[in-house]
């Protein structure tokens, strides 16, 4: 039997909002350490890696490892039926072909359950090599979302250039060109609002704006976002989910023709 209960049910709602536009289906791999999900988008340009640790749930039971293939649009529709303050429980019998979501209102007066058929997905798991990144940028997630939204109006691609002075986001297109420079925050009094750059080597890479805007759907999960870059390897955009895990997006760079 698999059962995972989360008082902060809104986290699951936000996680689905953060991945459903990028992925149509994915497998939730559950074991006694928690829930993992790893899937590439249909074009195989980006990859989502979600981890929700067992100790972040208010109750977590996983008698036997279980992989549940799900249509993420369906899961998103079901989770939209949960209130922001509801407790959400996911449960499934061993080798079941359905999963049940139970939503309990804060005062326990309303309890809803939704049963959904599971899918047989033989999604390939990619090996993501541990990488020492040349540049790591931590910044407010809302700031990053704003930059991606603004610059994607100017062009399909965004250049991210990280140096010791700071990080510059640029885009050019028909209507012109745009540059946004963020300096490293000097006095870090409020960590969440700071721009913190760790740089071993300067790095400049080009990425498709469309995917970056999909990634920023995760903004509500964390006040900060962390960008990790090295020459000629995929960008990592990471949103930490407080006390339970993270969602990481990987995006392959674009190269000059």
């Amino acid at each position: 039997m698999f059962e995972a209960r989360l008082l902060r049910g809104s986290i699951l709602k936000k996680v689905l909002e953060a991945i459903k536009d990028l992925l149509t289906q994915a497998t939730f791999d559950c074991d006694d350490s928690g829930i993992q999900l790893q899937a590439m988008d249909n074009s195989h340009v980006s990859l989502v890696s979600l981890q929700l640790r067992a100790d972040g749930f208010d109750k977590y039971r996983c008698d036997r490892n279980i992989s549940m293939g799900m249509n993420l649009n369906s899961v998103a529709k079901i989770l939209k039926c949960a209130g922001d303050k509801d407790t959400v429980t996911m449960k499934a019998q061993d080798n079941a072909d359905t999963v049940t979501f139970v939503f309990e209102s804060p005062n326990q007066e309303k309890v809803s359950d939704y049963e959904m058929k599971l899918m047989n997905l033989d999604l390939e798991h990619l090996g993501i090599p541990e990488t020492e990144y040349s540049c790591t940028i931590r910044m407010p997630s809302a700031e990053f979302a704003r930059i991606c939204r603004d610059l994607s109006q100017f062009g399909d691609s965004m250049v991210i250039a990280c140096t010791k002075e700071g990080v510059k986001f640029s885009a050019t297109g028909e209507i012109g060109s745009a540059n946004i420079k963020l300096a490293q925050t000097a006095s870090v009094d409020k960590e969440e609002e700071a721009v913190i750059i760790e740089m071993d080597e300067p790095v400049t890479l080009t990425f498709a704006c469309q995917y970056l805007n999909y990634f920023t759907k995760a903004t509500s999960l964390s006040p900060q976002v962390q960008l990790s870059m090295s020459a000629d390897v995929p960008l990592v955009v990471e949103y930490r989910i407080q006390d339970i895990g993270h969602i990481r997006y990987y995006l392959a760079p674009k190269i000059e023709d």
């Binding site: 990859l47 990619l126 090996g127 090599p129 080009t206 498709a208 392959a252 190269i255 000059e256 023709d257």
Partner: peptide
């Protein structure tokens, strides 16, 4: 123009 790389060339396949 720029060419979009695919992830498989960076990450080991299954």
């Amino acid at each position: 123009d720029e060419i979009q790389e695919a992830l498989q060339i960076f990450f080991t396949g299954p």
